[in-house]
Design a protein around this nucleic acid. Structure first.
Length: 204
DNA sequence: CAGAGGATCCTCT
DNA sequence: GAGGATCCTCTGA
């Protein structure tokens, strides 16, 4: 008989998603569980690494300076939905939209620790090495079955992709973000955060 | 409507 | 550690 140790339905509330992006990232998303139920398969990972992007003033953000295009429009919605975009011809990247309607803030999930559905993740990634299943924004989307075509704009308080509250406090580290050399004075802002003790980080 | 480049990953050296 | 893959999105004409 399976003993359910954790309740993965402790949804993070809309109020919290619509609050400050840095507070959401540090206090609520780091250590929380990113859950997906795609093609009748449940996969869950504990969020271990993320980056904050602010559309209003942050030159690294796709929506800077409050730029509105087809792609960025979803970031202007109320916090609590997903911004999933496509890069390099292959990879989806999953972001949590943060803040009130009209503010284009996003939190890129860069790594999770595999928790539930590890065999499913291995199959989707065609990879046995557990360290390479979910470390990196493209990898974790593949492992959790998240794609820009199907999941961009999806409500994170729904039943397909959701985030369940963390169960304890974690200490974390802040570092500059990855792959944003074009962002001038925002290039070195330490807006990447990761769990101090986690082995599942894309880059130290 | 063509061209350039990307919030990456994998392979090979 | 360098280079190629690969296709969507935005820009400018």
């Amino acid at each position: 008989m399976n003993k359910v140790r954790y309740n993965f339905s402790r949804y993070i509330s809309k109020e919290i998603y619509q609050g400050d992006a840095f507070e959401l990232a540090q206090k609520h998303l780091l250590g929380a569980y990113l859950c997906s139920y795609v093609n009748d398969e449940l996969t869950i990972g504990r969020i271990s690494e993320l980056e904050v992007y602010i559309g209003e003033y942050d030159k690294a953000c796709h929506a800077w300076p409050n730029k509105r295009t087809l792609r960025t429009e979803i970031m202007y919605h109320c916090g609590g939905c997903a911004y999933v975009f496509f890069v390099y011809g292959k990879y989806s990247q999953f972001n949590v939209v943060a803040g009130p309607q009209g503010k284009a803030n996003a939190i890129l999930i860069r790594s999770v620790e595999p928790v539930i559905g590890i065999d499913v993740m291995r199959r989707r990634r065609q990879c046995d090495d557990i360290k390479k299943l979910t470390t990196g924004p493209g990898r974790l989307c593949q492992a959790l079955g998240i794609s820009c075509k199907e999941h961009n704009g999806i409500d994170l308080c729904g039943k397909t992709i959701w985030i369940s509250a963390k169960e304890k406090e974690y200490s974390f580290i802040s570092r500059p973000r990855i792959g944003i050399d074009y962002a001038e004075e925002y290039r070195d802002k330490p807006w990447r955060f990761y769990l101090e003790d986690s082995l599942f980080i894309s880059k130290k």
